[in-house]
């Protein structure tokens, strides 16, 4: 029961992790931004699937429909999508400028050129949710 009842979440997790991996492992900035989008989209699916109700329908009042899906997650995700596309646009604009300034948009190559304090393989602290 548990497994089948959660298949939506498993999809979400898989997508999420693919996106997350792309963000932190890939050097190409455009690719990073795509990864970020994947990551975000998976979070969107998480919300939306939470709002789904079996046998429900789109939350627009109609005659003859008794069960509606929860409209709140939809609203949240609309906002989140907008935020996502805004981030994408800014990120892409930045990569255009970086490309002009440095001649490429490979973060790992640029790390050699501009020894920043950011490494691609930075270790986020995972310890805090492994209680």
């Amino acid at each position: 029961m548990a497994f089948l009842g959660h298949y939506n979440y498993y999809i979400v997790v898989v997508l999420m992790m693919i996106g997350f991996y792309v963000v932190i492992a890939r050097g190409n900035m455009v690719k990073k931004i795509m990864g970020l989008n994947l990551f975000q989209t998976s979070a969107f699916i998480l919300f939306i699937s939470a709002g789904k109700i079996m046998g429900g329908s789109t939350p627009i009042l109609r005659d003859g429909v008794e069960v509606y899906s929860n409209p709140l997650p939809h609203v949240l995700i609309l906002t989140a999508i907008v935020v996502g596309v805004a981030t994408t646009a800014v990120g892409l604009a930045l990569s255009v400028r970086i490309n002009e300034a440095y001649g490429n948009i490979e973060d790992d190559l640029l790390s050699e050129e501009e020894p920043d304090d950011f490494a691609l393989t930075q270790e986020p602290s995972r310890d805090d949710d492994s209680s």
Partner: peptide, 20 residues
């Protein structure tokens, strides 16, 4: 890192309510 995070999430979703 990704696998650990993924594990956490999988562990977490097992307590989530059933879909729909």
């Amino acid at each position: 890192v990704v696998s650990v995070t993924g594990m956490c999430l999988l562990w977490a979703v097992s307590d989530l309510p059933d879909f729909g």
